[in-house]
């Protein structure tokens, strides 16, 4: 009897053990890594696009969970031109890099600023829009300048994992930073007075001002020059080549200007380059 009992439990233990040992898909994934995303997506017939939720008007989820916005329309256009079925993967702000590094996504359309730090691990195309960073406060706020905001008694809200982290550290190092999961959360926090100021993407800021301009006010100064680009996994020239041609044509054809107007409600501002 006792041996029977042991064997039952032994079998159970062995099952758990072998299941945990046999579970190592790393090797398989590594093999995939060698292939170009281009050949992969063509074979698959599906383009997996990472985007962020809660970041209007670039990308947000409509209440049924479907992504909508400027970035989404561009992604759909790319899928259409490649004759692929678009499939959206919603990630959070830091999740954009993760999604590309782990190849969960083939491409990101996610209000994604190209910079050197990120380029160490992923790649970017040429930009399709250029933005800055602006501090927004409530209309009746006592804060008039960013110098005043640089005070431990004030709180600045922004979404974690974005460029706002570095910009706020440079421009208002002494103030308190409150990090949220989405830009939408940070906006709600400012709206309800939980933070004193929100550090925003300048175009997003323009849309908020257009809608609720009677409630808010911008602090003088634009604190960044950011090239919003398509993100892709690093080290994949073929895929980059296709995406870059897409961006160039998209910018030149007037399609970009049209989609921008559709989602932001005004003409895309001309960028003053200073070298």
């Amino acid at each position: 009897m006792k041996t029977m009992r042991r064997s039952v439990l032994g079998a159970l233990a062995f099952g758990v053990l072998s299941a945990s040992l046999g579970w190592s898909p790393a090797a398989e994934a590594q093999q995939q890594q060698q292939q170009s995303v281009l050949s992969e997506v063509l074979k698959r017939g599906v383009l997996r696009i990472a985007t962020i939720g809660g970041n209007p008007p670039y990308s947000s989820l409509d209440p049924s969970g479907k992504p909508v916005g400027y970035d989404i329309d561009i992604a759909n256009l790319l899928a259409e031109q490649l004759k692929l079925k678009p499939e959206f993967i919603v990630v959070d702000v830091p999740g954009r890099i993760t999604a590309l590094q782990t190849r969960r996504a083939d491409v990101t359309f996610a209000n994604f600023t190209a910079n050197v730090e990120r380029s160490k691990v992923i790649a970017f195309t040429d930009p399709y829009v250029v933005v800055g960073s602006i501090y927004m406060v409530k209309k009746d706020s006592p804060i008039q300048t960013v110098e005043q905001l640089n005070d431990p008694k004030y709180k600045i809200g922004f979404a974690r994992g974005g460029t706002a982290e570095g910009i706020s550290a440079l421009t208002a190092p002494k103030s308190q930073k409150v990090r949220f999961d989405t830009v939408g959360d940070a906006y709600l926090a400012m709206q309800s007075g939980q933070v004193d100021s929100q550090l925003q993407d300048s175009l997003q800021n323009a849309s908020y001002m257009a809608k609720d301009g009677d409630k808010y006010r911008n602090l003088p100064g634009n604190w960044s020059y950011e090239e919003i680009s398509i993100g892709l996994p690093a080290g994949d020239f073929d895929w980059w080549r296709v995406l870059n041609i897409f961006v160039k044509n998209f910018n030149a054809s007037g399609e970009n200007a049209r989609l921008f107007k559709k989602w932001f409600g005004y003409e895309m501002p001309a960028v003053q380059q200073k070298y």
Partner: peptide, 22 residues
């Protein structure tokens, strides 16, 4: 909801975002 799965809480947060009513 925190990792972006649209269940009840996330659905509510999305409605909150669309309507601005918290």
């Amino acid at each position: 909801s925190i990792i972006g799965y649209v269940e009840l809480t996330k659905s509510g947060l999305l409605v909150r975002e669309s309507t601005g009513i918290s």
